[in-house]
Design a protein around this nucleic acid. Structure first.
Length: 931
DNA sequence: ACGCTCACG
DNA sequence: GACGTACGTGAGCGTA
């Protein structure tokens, strides 16, 4: 039979099961309205197929494609080994009925869908890949399954759809340490716990690769096993020969199956709209049906609305960008304002010329009062085209006058009886504040999501919309472009802006309707209302105020650094004997470990030499070169990240630096500071600390810094109930010295700095979920000794061990951990197997401690404006356990008394701690002095 | 865009 | 000696 498939053709093989499981885990458990059939995974699967089809263009586009599925649970491998895949978890109940639907979905898209009883999908993929390769075509396998890596090579590649990463021969080598043709040999030795392939006990991928590379093949290795030098390894291979040979058969894919179809039958076909629409309508997917209908240029079928539920469901109204209204005069806006007053709430979104609120100009405002009913009010869109070099700055016709719009909106935005809903409302509130409007009261969908979902995903609008509304928002990129040719939003034509901007308000309103009741069922309403939402106006004020930074001080330091760096550079070239890029770790590593021949060099996972500071420090005791590299790096860091970059952030209008705090950035409840990050200004080194001298108080004022002393250890003492620690804090003792005394049986008056240093490291280690390895590395002591310290610590403070065990157990039970104030931090990875496991455990142990400390300072910040009202003082910055104020000279004592009181009592009345919270204060003309 | 390195609590 | 490890962040640089 003549076959057409050959050179120039490109076959895509999609691992269907992988798609299904990803779809299942990525989406909430959606059900079909009419009968409650679970369809979440089908919906995700359909979306992934649609996205795949849309993305299949360009040079890599497939000419042939098939989705390959497993069929039946019993395969020829079970006949060889009855334990094969025996420890697989059963398929979730609500996924099982969706499996056949994914086949239907594939066929509905007119994509070939293949499965064969008694074989795994991997075998079909292997056979097809070989056939296509032999015919001279290209093959891409869309999967991240390492079992398929044996197929790579000769025109066959893999594509990890999750990371969008192509895996070629080099990629396989990275994973297995051998080429694709020896992958099965390595797998046979290493075994696989997921598939329950036994392999050789005690041998993993690393050792297996070593052996195979030495003996060239598994067969030769087994025949010559007696030549292996390590006695234990030799015996293992001799004893387990049969098991290893069986393992190889289990992992070896069958690439020579008799297939009842040929490659030509997989040629790409356009979807047939009729059956596709019928399938989607049957699944009752409203949004995706409409989107695909638009793509295909057909009318979407009408999907019957579900029988009336108690509350209007957000997803009942399809998104329709053409339905949004462009408001261009006062009369039209008044209609919207009447509707807002009628309802008592409105979703608001602003469009501006910049992401930086202190520079951004308001370009337009969107409003939404009901799902699907949104408008956009364009204000200053320019008429000139973006690519028109002589583009005029004349305004486009049909826009509202800015002042007129604001004067109409102001009473609504400030009306105490109308809730203004936003996604990241701090941004919009600052834009309005600069225009004289104080937006209140507010709700914020980003913060609602953070209160419910911290730890599971981020809280940007795109991700929330996709996850919880099943709708992909219109992307901004095509409107603005990217890179150098990017334009600002005021250059976007009004017709396009309306669709994009109004949709954002629409999405925000729908998310609000969905999230609001969920806050109650997830029991985080109090967290949202007392720890998240009230922080918005407080942070907005701090950010707008900014901190004064002295440009001359920074500029002088930059120059001094430049000179020193030039000197060091010359010295380094001399030492190396040639010029090189001092800032490129790969080149530094090459000089150290190849040219100079130093020992102990490690490589990173990308195969480059690794040159972190601690490794260089060890080498610096013997050699000048690494010492000078360290000197250079410190200066380069200080100059580029601080003395140079900070100058760029001085706002020309205010002369101050305005950071932005993200409330929902860190999973634990901590804030994060960006643009610039003012939470990592140097302090630990003398040279770096001087940068804080550039953070100054205004003429006639001083800076005041107030910081919690040992707050995390105090919280640990409370949560874990460690009486000795509590007592020490009560007595105002040196906590690390006390720990050292307990552990090493040294009386306090005989304490040495060295012993205290060890105890301090252990105290911190405990907060981070201590491990012998980590402590050993930190203290640079042997691992056994470190483990000994930890054992001793747990012996003296048994409550700590209990806290750790209980916390991990709680996380495994509930999928989250909690702070003392009820903040939930989700721990989706806690039941993971493998290297992920330890990571998740330590994060779970740390989160309640770090998170409670974060809650405490949040409460203090929220109460601060009222406590210092009337004082000539402003709160400027937060650095996790520290607050920085600017206050008129003479008023500092009064401020310190008031602010300290708020901070020390921040936990009450919600939580009464067994330990007191102590706050240290400092003042000065600049931050270095105040700290 | 991503990995490495390093600044902070 | 199977694997990789202290917790939480953001920014600048080099390399692809």
């Amino acid at each position: 039979m003549a076959q057409n498939f050959g050179k120039g053709h490109h076959l895509h093989l999609i691992d269907g099961s992988a798609f299904i499981f990803r779809a299942y885990h990525a989406l909430p458990p959606l059900t079909r309205k009419s009968d409650g059939l679970p369809v979440g995974a089908v919906s995700g699967f359909v979306n992934m197929l649609q996205r795949y089809i849309e993305g299949n263009t360009g040079d890599d586009a497939a000419t042939h494609v098939a989705v390959i599925f497993d069929k039946g649970s019993h395969t020829f491998r079970n006949d060889m080994y009855d334990q094969y895949k025996a420890n697989r978890e059963a398929m979730p109940e609500d996924l099982r009925p969706q499996i056949p639907l994914t086949r239907d979905a594939t066929r509905a898209f007119n994509i070939a869908c293949e499965e064969i009883e008694g074989f795994e999908a991997d075998d079909i993929i292997a056979t097809l890949a070989h056939q296509a390769r032999d015919a001279g075509g290209r093959v891409t396998i869309l999967s991240s399954d390492k079992d398929l890596m044996q197929l790579v090579g000769g025109g066959v590649e893999m594509l990890d759809p999750m990371k969008n990463k192509r895996i070629d021969k080099d990629g396989v080598f990275e994973k297995f340490g051998v080429g694709p043709e020896r992958v099965v040999d390595v797998q046979a030795l290493a075994g696989d716990s997921v598939d329950n392939v036994p392999g050789a006990p005690g041998i993993g991928i690393k050792t297996a690769a070593l052996l195979i590379n030495e003996f060239h093949s598994l067969e030769e290795l087994l025949d010559r096993a007696d030549e292996i030098t390590q006695p234990k390894r030799r015996q293992t291979l001799i004893d387990n020969r049969a098991q290893i040979e069986l393992s190889k058969k289990l992992v070896q894919l069958d690439c020579d199956m008799d297939l009842p179809f040929d490659l030509d039958s997989l040629e790409i076909r356009d979807p047939d709209p009729e059956p596709l629409m019928a399938f989607l309508a049957d699944m009752e997917f409203r949004t995706v049906t409409k989107r695909i209908a638009d793509k295909l240029g057909v009318t979407a079928p009408v999907i019957e609305a579900a029988p009336a539920p108690d509350a209007p469901q957000p997803e009942e109204v399809a998104f329709d960008a053409d339905a949004y209204e462009c408001v261009s005069d006062a009369a039209a806006l008044q209609v919207w304002i009447d509707r807002i007053r009628e309802r008592g709430y409105v979703a608001v979104d602003t469009e501006t010329t910049s992401l930086s609120e202190m520079k951004a100009e308001l370009v337009g405002v969107s409003l939404c009062v009901e799902p699907g009913q949104a408008c956009y009010i364009p204000l200053i869109h320019k008429a000139g085209k973006a690519d028109d070099l002589f583009g005029t700055d004349d305004l486009e016709e049909g826009q509202m006058d800015l002042d007129e719009c604001l004067s109409l909106l102001k009473p609504v935005l400030e009306d105490a009886s109308i809730i203004k809903i936003g996604q990241n409302m701090k941004y919009d509130a600052k834009i309005f504040a600069r225009l004289g409007i104080t937006v209140a009261p507010i709700d914020d969908t980003m913060l609602m999501s953070y209160a419910m979902h911290a730890g599971t995903h981020n809280h940007g609008m795109d991700i929330l919309s996709e996850r919880y509304l099943g709708h992909t928002p219109i992307p901004i990129k095509p409107l603005l472009g990217a890179g150098k040719s990017a334009i600002t939003f005021d250059r976007v034509p009004v017709v396009d802006a309306v669709k994009y901007a109004a949709e954002d308000a629409d999405i925000t309103l729908r998310l609000w309707q969905l999230f609001k009741p969920q806050l109650h069922t997830k029991k985080v309403t109090t967290v949202y209302e007392t720890l998240e939402r009230p922080l918005v106006p407080v942070l907005a004020q701090m950010e707008m105020h900014g901190v004064k930074v002295d440009r001359d001080t920074l500029s002088r330091m930059s120059n001094a650094f430049s000179q020193k760096m030039a000197g060091l550079e010359a010295e380094l070239y001399e030492l190396a004997g040639h010029e090189f890029n001092v800032q490129a770790p790969a080149q530094v590593g090459k000089i150290l470990f190849e040219e100079m021949g130093l020992e102990g060099g490690k490589k990173t996972k990308t195969g480059q030499w690794s040159t972190p500071a601690d490794a260089l420090e060890d080498l610096a005791t013997e050699h000048d070169f690494p010492a000078r590299i360290l000197d250079y790096r410190q200066l380069a860091k200080l100059k580029s990240t601080y003395t140079d970059a900070l100058q760029e952030h001085i706002n020309p209008e205010t002369g101050r630096v305005h950071t932005s705090y993200s409330i929902a950035g860190a999973n634990t409840g901590r804030l994060a500071s960006t643009d610039p990050n003012l939470q990592n200004i140097p302090v630990r080194s003398e040279e770096g600390r001087r940068i804080r001298e550039a953070f100054v108080a205004e003429e006639g004022k001083v800076l005041v810094a107030l910081d919690y002393s040992q707050i995390e250890l105090r919280i640990l003492a409370h949560i874990a109930g460690i009486d000795a620690l509590k007592q020490a804090f009560k007595d105002g003792q040196d906590i690390h010295a006390m720990t050292a005394s307990e552990m090493f049986d040294v009386p306090l008056d005989e304490m040495t700095p060295e012993i205290r240093r060890k105890a301090k490291a252990i105290n911190f280690g405990v907060i981070y979920g201590i491990s012998g390895f980590g402590l050993a590395r930190n203290l640079r002591i042997p691992r056994g000794e470190a483990q000994g310290f930890i054992d001793r610590y747990f012996e003296r403070f048994p409550g700590i061990r209990d806290y750790m065990d209980d916390t991990v157990a709680f996380a495994k039970d509930h999928g989250y951990v909690q702070t003392l104030f009820g903040r939930k931090i989700n721990t989706p990875e806690i039941n993971a197997k493998g290297p992920h496991a330890g990571f998740a455990k330590r994060a779970a142990i740390n989160a309640p401690i770090q998170g409670t400390a974060a809650d405490v300072i949040r409460r203090a910040m929220i109460r601060m404006p009222a406590a210092i009202e009337g004082m000539p003082a402003k709160m400027l910055l937060q650095v996790h356990d520290e607050l920085i104020f600017e206050v008129e000279q003479g008023a500092e004592d009064k401020l310190i008394a008031a602010a300290k009181d708020v901070m020390e009592n921040a936990s009450v009345p919600a939580v009464k701690l067994d330990v007191t919270l102590a706050v240290d204060a400092g003042t000065g003309a600049n931050w270095a002095e105040a700290h």
